[in-house]
Every structure is written in C-alpha cells, then in structure tokens.
Design a binder for these strands. Structure first.
Length: 467
RNA sequence: GGCGACAUAGCCAAGCGGUAAGGCAGAGGUCUGCAAAACCUUUACCCCCAGUCCGAAUCUGGGUGUCGCCUCCA
C-alpha cells in the first residue's frame, strides 16, 4: 500500500506510481507576481507544500517546481499604473512573495522559474507546434488549433462543442475556432516584447507552464497541481500544447485544490472580501493559518472567517500546551528506564504514527491526520505525568513533532530561555508561596502574565510558557 | 444550456456499506492555596422522500438548498 491520489484526469483515486522509483516530479502553478498574494492563493500553496512535505516524509525525493508568471496583461497594467517596468513589478512582488511564503513556512521550491527567463524555450516550443501543424500564425499572433488535438477537453471532461455552447468569449474572426487560444501575442504599443519568428511579441499565458515543466522535469511529469479554477482553460490547454508537441502524456496525476471562500463566496475584489496573506499573518501565526487550512480536505472548499481562525488558534494552543508540559517532564522527570507498563504506553504512542500514515496515504487526508495527532496528544497527556521517566516524555515529544512535520506545523522549535530578571521574579514568587504569602505570589504572577509569561504550578514545581 | 461539487452536533470537520473520529465552544466534575494546564462525564432522528441490501450518513432514483467551472482568476 502506498499513497493514493485523486486524479482530476480520471476522476478517481489512484495508487501513486512514480515515473522514477523513489522520486516525485511535480509542477505547481504559482502566482502572477503583480501583488501580494491573498489567502486563497495561500491555501493552494499550502496544500501543495503539504503534499510535497508528505512525499518527503514518506521517503521520496521531490523535485518541486513552482513558477512565477512575470509577464501578462495584469503585470503590464500594474506597471503602467505605477509608471515602472514590468520587470520592476515582478522583482518587487517576487521578493514580497518570499517574505510571506517564508513566514507561512512554505518550503522553498526546488526551482521557481520565471516565464521571462525561459523565453527562448517558449519560442522554440511554439515553433514545434507550428511545425507540427497544431498552431497557426495570424498577424503576428500564434494560436493553438484546439480541434487538431484529439484529447481536448479530457481534463475538464467537456467536449469542445459543449464548451463552445456555453462560451462567453469574444468572437475573434481571425481564429479558426473560438476555442483556439493564443500561444504568442503580437506586441502592442508600449508593451514589453521579445523577438520571435512571428515578429516582436510575448507568450500567451498557458505556454509558459508547459515549457518550464518539460524543460525542468521532462516531457512527462508525475504530478501537476494548481487551484481548481485552473482546470479549465489553463490546465486543459497545457495538456493540449504539451501532448501535441511530445506525443506523450504530459502529467500522470492532476491535483486541484478547492477554493477558499469568504462568507461562502469566492473572494473577489469587487465584493471587497479580499484578504492578503500578509494581513492575516499580522494577526495569526503561520501555525494557526496552517492548522485552519489543513483541518479540512484539500478537495473541499473552506470558508474563511476570523472566528474560525480563533478556533484554530485554540487548537494550536492545545498542541503547544501538551508539548510544553512534556518538555517540563523531560527536564524534571525521573531519569530511569521504562517499566513494563510504560513500555506499553510507548508502544501504543508509536502506533499513532502508523495510523497517521494510513490516513495521510489516502489522498492526503490532513483532517484525519490532525485528528490522529490530537488522539496522540490526549494519550500522552493522560498517561505521562511528573512521575514518568524523561525518556517516555521525550519519546512523545519527538513523535508529536514528527507527525506535525509534513503539515509544517510547529516546526520552528527554537525557543528563547528566560532572562535573569524573570527568573528572579519566578524565584521570588516561589518563596512567597512557600511562606503562604499568596497575595504577593499572585501579584508577581499577574505581573509576569502582563509580560507575556504564564506560570503554572505543578507537583514538581513551577512551569512557564509564553502567552 | 453543458460539466461538477457540497449538505453530518452551537461552530468547524472526518468518515463514503457494518451501526457516528477529531478540534473549538458550552455544562458538570477531579486536581489545585487560588489559577492555569490536564483528565473524566455530557451534547447528532448524518437536508427531505422513495428504493436496493441482513444492514445506508455512506449505494440508486427523485426533490430542496448552497457553491464552483464553462471569461483573467489559486
């Protein structure tokens, strides 16, 4: 039994079989870098970051490519508005992307290719399509002829005729068919352009992903991912271009993350229900955001609200509490071997990992995975206490961090110690308590609380944590 | 019009044929100088109606409702 993936292409869950044993070649459509990315983008990135981490957790070597679209209409518009070059905009927002992505604890991709840095390959890709008769040029534009590609519509499970029937696209008389899409766009006044066999111009949107995916991963890749809205037309078009050119299957598995909605509606600027990731990260830790987003299945839409963020925050608190309590036992517990009974506890604790893998293997069921972690936490909380050996507590801590790692939650374990002043206050309070001077003890505790240090009295002494 | 998804406790959310996980919130309790944390107990006619089956939240048909894609979009 291995990992199963729901494949949009077949609409079935399938056993994951990599092209090369032990390796995963995956490509995920990244952002158009004309703005800060919003929390909807964040969900998609987070989902695929988790997929990637989980593959690594299961021992795969992952080549993870996520592109930056750094040339398109929106980029040009933004550059014109700000009176700077398209490249200026791209550079700026790529930098901002990393700021937010790093803070969200998104692992850096193996490569983050930029469309403009692959222009020669894009042009030769298009040229191949023209040479093979899948594309035609009109006035410096180059279009892909969808009816030439037999499999068109196989990803979105629609026929070209059905798509056309519902189409709301403008009729362009120069195209052979309304469903034909641009591979190359002739330069318009004031737009950045590159030299090509069809004159100055720039690539259409879909071609960059096909080109960079094949260039960096090969003509057939294992997994292609993105937001659900990319199924049509973007991914459909990618398949058409790539398979028309190579004659091989482009991607074996297609994964799509569902939407993040606000008040049950799609986020949109016109509805003014738009949050950037940065705004949210100012109010909530990445751990909270990640727990929130991973607590539902990636193929189901989730609704965003501050109330739900608060709930997630409490969940993170529960995890943290358990961990600080266990760490306290590692520091103050008994330094001895495990009794027979404790060995049983340890064994049972370790079994949660098997359960975790079982549910996560099933199409990355992070919701179930999280519930296994909470089960583990309750078990540890119940059965490990101040009288337990350090080893047992240490075992539980490692296990919790281990299961949390593919989710990217609570992985920044570096903690600051307490400074001398605070340590002295804690000592003073302990003395006051021994003298039954509870008023003074409580005063110091309140003072520390105001400083962000929470004290908890245990049978073995005082335990502290940060608020 | 075409294609599709979803409807489970106050809130969120798994489960997808064998009799309802988990989190948050609430109530009661244990422990504690108090508190906190933790633990225990407690809260579900699984949208409706038919049907298949020994057995359905899970499958089939029909409703109702919400949402998405078919246009730039994660």
């Amino acid at each position: 039994m291995g990992i199963k993936i729901y494949n949009t292409l077949t609409r079935k869950k399938e056993e994951f079989v990599p092209i090369t044993e032990g390796e995963v070649k995956m490509y995920v459509c990244g952002p158009t870098v004309y703005n800060f990315f919003h929390i909807g983008n964040a969900r998609t990135f987070l989902v695929f970051d988790t997929v990637r981490r989980y593959f690594e957790y299961r021992g795969y070597k992952v080549r993870f490519i996520q592109n930056f679209t750094d040339i398109d209409d929106k980029m040009i518009k933004k550059a014109n508005e700000e009176g700077v070059t398209v490249k200026d905009i791209a550079d700026k927002y790529i930098k901002e992307y990393y700021t937010d992505a790093d803070k969200l604890n998104l692992k850096r991709a193996t490569v983050n290719p930029r469309a403009t840095e692959h222009m020669d390959e894009i042009i030769s890709f298009i040229k191949d399509l023209v040479d093979k008769g899948y594309a035609y040029e009109v006035d410096g534009d180059v279009y892909f002829e969808t009816r030439k590609f037999k499999g068109y519509g196989k990803l979105s499970h629609q026929s070209i005729d059905d798509l056309e029937a519902g189409a709301r696209i403008d009729i362009d008389e120069r195209k052979k068919d309304p469903m034909d899409f641009a591979l190359w766009k002739a330069q318009k006044l004031g737009e950045p352009a590159w030299e090509s066999p069809w004159g100055m111009g720039r690539p259409g949107w879909h071609i960059e992903c096909s080109t960079m995916a094949s260039s960096l991963l090969g003509e057939t890749i294992d997994i292609h991912g993105g937001g659900a809205d990319l199924i049509f037309p973007h991914h459909e078009n990618e398949i058409a271009q790539s398979e028309a050119r190579s004659g091989k299957q482009f991607s074996r598995y297609w994964m799509h993350a569902a939407y993040l909605n606000i008040d049950n509606q799609k986020m949109s600027k016109s509805l003014n229900n738009f949050f950037t990731t940065r705004e949210i990260l100012e109010k909530y830790d990445a751990d909270v955001v990640r727990l929130f987003m991973l607590s539902g299945h990636y193929r189901n839409p989730i609704n965003f609200s501050l109330d739900l963020m608060e709930q997630a925050k409490s969940g993170i608190e529960r995890m943290k509490n358990s961990l600080t309590n266990l760490k306290y036992i590692v520091e103050n517990g008994e330094d001895r071997e495990l009794t027979a009974e404790e060995k049983e506890i340890s064994l049972r604790l370790n079994a949660y990992k098997d359960k975790f893998i079982e549910v996560m293997d099933d199409d990355f069921n992070t919701a179930d995975g999280i519930s296994v972690i909470f089960d583990l936490i309750r078990d540890a909380n119940t059965n490990i206490n101040e009288a337990s050996p350090k080893k047992l507590a240490q075992n539980a801590i490692e296990l919790i961090y281990d299961l949390l790692s593919p989710l990217g939650i609570l992985q920044n374990t570096d903690e600051d110690g307490l400074d001398e002043k605070i340590e002295k206050m804690i000592e003073d309070r302990q003395r006051a308590r021994e003298e039954k001077n509870f008023k003074e003890a409580d005063r110091i505790r309140d003072e520390l609380k105001a400083m962000g240090i929470i004290l908890e009295d245990t049978a073995k002494g005082v335990r502290w944590k940060r608020a």
